[in-house]
Design a protein around this nucleic acid. Structure first.
Lengths: 349, 349
DNA sequence: GAGGTCATTGTGAGCGCTAACAATTCCCGC
DNA sequence: GCGGGAATTGTTAGCGCTCACAATGACCTC
């Protein structure tokens, strides 16, 4: 603190003050064992006094390691991506890595490629790509890149190493729950066509119905937004009384729109139509009525994918499979069962 | 592509292939004017052929510029922080900067200090701190740090350069709207005590009532979560018929809980009690009933704060004030006015 | 055709650190 | 009190790039 040059102090400055060579300073900083206690203390005092911090660029240049990971994501204001991002960063930081993020509005071959370039210019050692669109997955496989990449949200379609919640299983849980409650069939409001996770949920829903000997109705399509759910809900309301008693909606936000449309059409939930969502966003417990949904462990996705990426970067043989699947969990609430428990009494997510 | 050494190619490798000096390669890459077209083309071909990319660490070391910004944030799965984060990254990338994020679970002096250290070790040239807790703001002012910092979400309390939505004004809009609709008084469910934004909203609400000659009732406290809103809503329901006809809730998530509690208590919204929220999250239009709320332009916050930070980094005199205030906007829906328009007809956020 | 100017290219010296090796010191047993 | 090995410290050479400056050559003017 006494010293205040125009440029931040260098290792040589510290060395001079401590009366040692710069290499000894480096050893102290690197916790190298063979440094005399007295010397170490003297160096440490000098470091303190000058407020010295190692220059990360010089270090990175000499070691060829930046200790920085990249993340490419889209739709980061949605609960799922935001939660994954959070878990990713936390896991990476625990391993001493910094995380640089590129959030794009729309994931295409171009934006993905630009994002990887930008991260590459930033010197990342590896990248997590949250790439739920099918096209992005393919692009990922083809793009030339000088570092390992782990995909997240690619559903069952990943050709690169990946970590995913098992969407197929989640859809089976949701659909099976409705069938078990006595519904003859289950309609489905699906996510966008080109999202692999949406496709996996459709597949799980369809398979479950088929196993029960039921011909699946035509699924509706939304874009994940509450508004698209509202519009689909208006359409669904027209089928009430003609065999529609249960709907599996591919995410909670759309389910919210469906609930509103049904309510406005005078259709009661769950008495007339039962609704199941997907994601378990924090709000869904407070919808009207509280929403039965499928909870995804985004935190696990984040941790597992970081662990996998680090294995790849450090050249270790991955300790587990390179295509990780995480089990989702059904959360039953009043939208499928009118006597479900009030808020705050069930274990939180 | 033909070349495939163990190490990525260096500028010298490219220079050799193109038959020029490494400096000429640097000039081509830096778009320096004085390079003959023929030479430039030859170099570019060599770059292409080898798949060469500049080493960012070496570049950063030589230029003393990392072109990386840091962001410290908490509660990043909430709509507000997530939106801000997105806008921040997008604005920074447009200026050629990479963004490294540290998301902490709880913002304290310790976690903030650790986050800044971590970012500092990553070589960031400046930091945006999303620091809504009052304690964090103070910590920020005192912490020694070798780079400029711009605070976001610090409400009116920032001692460092900052960009904020004017929360005081937002609260006045919300409260004034309810008074104008004929309510005699307005209750308030506030956010956590130590959040400056919560305090600013309380102040705006209180001031508006006082100006109207009304003694403000005791505000309730929540923690932003729907559950805390639900609990407060149960309490509020007990005051219906005893002067409670309107509530201003400090965020949309809590408002969702309040709506549920009122509904369960048989209180109708807006006929018995009108409710106004804050944030305009995408879901609020689909609540039961759709929620009147205050929209914050997070995107503007992100852009303005990045512009300010870059001014500070580049040593320019900031082109505007160093404490930026952004105006919020009232969005009227059915929770205060039963004949509000259906979804999809109003201009989107 | 000498001298001057400009465009173009090359050379050398760092940026601040780590890694490999060399040099010094210390401590022990005999 | 001296050889030998371990512990400790110093020296040197990069890591791959940019910056400042030097060198070259082309072209022009008088």
């Amino acid at each position: 603190m006494t010293h205040s040059p125009l440029r931040p102090p260098t290792m040589a400055d510290v060395a001079r003050l401590a009366g040692v060579s710069h290499q000894t300073v480096s050893r102290v900083l690197g916790d190298h064992p063979n440094v005399r206690d007295e010397t170490r203390a003297r160096v440490q005092r000098a470091i303190e006094e000058m407020g010295y911090r190692r220059n990360s660029s010089a270090r990175a240049l000499a070691t060829r390691r930046t200790r920085t990971l990249g993340v490419v994501a889209s739709n980061t204001t949605l609960y799922g991506p935001a939660s994954t991002l959070f878990a990713l960063e936390e896991a990476a930081r625990a391993e001493g890595y910094l995380v640089s993020t590129v959030s794009v509005r729309k994931l295409t071959v171009e934006t993905l490629s630009e994002a990887l370039d930008h991260l590459s210019d930033g010197g990342v050692e590896g990248v997590i790509a949250i790439a739920p669109q099918r096209s992005a997955v393919e692009a990922l496989a083809e793009l030339r890149r000088p570092f390992p990449v782990v995909a997240v949200g690619t559903g069952s379609a990943s050709t690169v190493p990946s970590a995913n919640v098992d969407q197929y299983l989640g859809a089976r849980l949701a659909t099976g729950h409705l069938l078990a409650a006595g519904h003859r069939t289950v309609w489905h409001l699906a996510g966008p066509e080109d999202w692999q996770e949406a496709a996996d949920r459709v597949a799980g829903w369809r398979k479950t119905l088929e196993e029960a000997g039921v011909e699946p109705p035509m699924p509706l399509r939304g874009d994940w937004s509450p508004l698209s759910g509202y519009r689909a809900g208006q359409e669904l309301a027209g089928w009430v009384g003609r065999g529609l008693t249960a709907v599996f909606v591919a995410n909670d936000q759309m389910a919210l729109g469906v609930l509103r449309a049904l309510r406005e059409a005078g259709v009661r939930t769950p008495q007339d139509v039962a609704v199941v969502g997907y994601d378990d966003i924090p709000e869904s417990e407070f919808f009207a009525p509280p929403l039965t949904t499928v909870r995804q462990d985004f935190s696990a996705v984040g941790q597992r994918s970081i662990a996998l990426l680090l294995d790849l970067i450090e050249g270790r043989t991955p300790s587990g499979p390179t295509r990780i699947a995480i089990e989702p969990q059904l959360v039953v609430r009043a939208s499928t069962y009118p006597y479900a428990s009030p808020p705050g009494t069930a274990p939180p997510g």
